[in-house]
């Protein structure tokens, strides 16, 4: 279990990492990056899977089931859309 100040340090370091990643990005990549980071928080899928795997009773199971559907949509949809956006950068590359 990650607790107390260790958790705080992890939050802080991850936040700086996110900030630095975006730092000097050309304007043309803003929308693809928004889409790419939208894909990355699709990692909520692993949490939804664990929550569904531990659900007791009808309501918890239903919420977990719906949550997993939504999370899978976030991950898969985020990937497909980002990949399609970035395909436009093909011609400028070579």
């Amino acid at each position: 279990m990650i607790t107390g100040f260790v958790a705080l340090y992890i939050f802080m370091l991850a936040a700086f990492t996110g900030y630095e990643i975006i730092g000097r990005v050309p304007t043309i990549l803003h929308t693809p990056l928004m889409s790419g980071s939208n894909f990355v928080h699709g990692i909520v899928l692993v949490g939804a899977m664990v929550a569904l795997g531990n659900a007791d009773g009808f309501w918890e199971t239903l919420i977990g089931f719906v949550g997993t559907i939504l999370a899978a949509g976030n991950a898969v949809g985020g990937y497909v859309v980002t990949e399609r956006m970035l395909e436009m950068f093909k011609s400028s590359k070579d």
Binding site: A15, T17, G18, I22, S37, I43
Partner: peptide
């Protein structure tokens, strides 16, 4: 992943 996306 969540925090990186939150900041970015």
């Amino acid at each position: 992943a969540g925090m990186v996306v939150g900041a970015a």
